[in-house]
Amino acid sequence: MSGLQIVNGLAGLLIVTSLLVVVARKPSQSAKFYALQSLVLVAVFVALGSATNAPQLYVWAAVAFVTKVVLVPVIMARSFGRLSDERLGSGERISPAVTVLLAAVVVLLCTLIISGVTLPAAAGIKPALAISLAHFFFGLACIVTQRNILKQVFGYCLMENGSHLTLALLAGSAPELVEIGITTDAVFAVVIMVILATQINRKLATLDADQLTTLKG
């Protein structure tokens, strides 16, 4: 397999791992899968870096490894383990089976959309590009279909990984500062979400987004 094929294949794995993140029963379990997924992302960066001969992607990979494989999952796993909501159950609005089918549909649609792009940078990596877009929307779907607010945080992380991958695929040559800015923002976002979720759990004793409906109209 050529370098770009490896990139494409690894991108496919991203969807699989994100499915695991979404389908996992416990948020702390999801955190582990998220670390796995980020590891795949790092691998994509490295593979892409070697395939397109773009050394700055190694820097990205390193940054992503520190933040996404280590930092964020550790924060999540440690804080989410302490939160619980007995009444919530699995907190899924749709069953895992439908989730998987949804993922398939999303990938299909994104493939169709991406097939129209004529950008030269996208030539060899259209599948991966489609996956990155699909990954983004899959994250969105996770936020919409999960009642557990902790799962929603994961949804955000998945979206963020998706756009990150697009950035790397299409614009691997961006200044490093850009990448660092984006990553830092994402880490802060997760930290604040975690803090807020903890406060909500402490104050309202729930993790169920459907319980957060006092404000209406």
Partner: peptide, 22 residues
Amino acid sequence: PRHSWFGLGIASLAFVFYISGL
């Protein structure tokens, strides 16, 4: 059925992967 649907989902995902040429 739920479990088998999950299997079907995986299979369709594989099919989509094939189509998108991953």
